[in-house]
């Protein structure tokens, strides 16, 4: 009986270990069209289920979009022709302390902020080439790009 129970518990304990690994920031839930993750110089397809880590860059093509749920329940999605760098993600699930910093280099971004922004308003920042956004909670949109002539 005990060993049967253990055989059930052990894989999940392992899975839980994976889920809380330090570099795990979030997971891709939505992916359409051309969409990739750049990680340590390598390009990976941005498929549903792929884990997103601090340091990753999300890149979409003309028909691409990607939606990611982060560990603090932040919902982050980018539209076509977008480049979003996940510069920093730290989240303590007990205290909700941490930091979430990202940079939208170009394109469009939709954010529903999560537990980090709720706990400490200074913790969440989005940068663009022209501005820094301080996030004091909830939902917002960002478009950045060079002006067309």
């Amino acid at each position: 009986m005990r060993s049967k129970l253990m055989s059930l518990v052990v894989p999940i304990v392992l899975a839980a270990g994976v889920a809380v690994a330090a570099e795990d920031a979030g997971q891709i839930k939505v992916s359409k069209g051309a969409a990739q993750i750049e990680r340590s110089g390598k390009r990976l397809s941005a498929q549903v289920g792929r884990v997103v880590q601090q340091g990753d860059v999300v890149i979409t093509g003309a028909d691409g979009s990607v939606g990611i749920t982060f560990r603090d329940n932040s919902l982050v999605s980018v539209g076509p022709d977008s480049v979003l760098a996940i510069d920093r993600f730290v989240f303590d699930s007990t205290t909700h302390q941490g930091a979430f910093e990202s940079s939208l280099k170009q394109g469009t971004l939709a954010v529903v902020s999560g537990k980090l922004a709720k706990q400490s308003p200074e913790a969440v920042k989005v940068k663009t080439p022209a501005a820094i956004l301080g996030v004091r909670g909830t939902e917002f949109l960002v478009r950045t790009g060079a002006a067309k002539d």
Partner: peptide, 30 residues
Amino acid sequence: LVLAGCAGRDDLYVLLPGKDGKTGALVVNS
């Protein structure tokens, strides 16, 4: 160049009404 002070961006930042009924705040600093 833009960061150095030149014009030429077409940026738009929008705060949405929260689905939970609360609208938060976004501080834009350029």
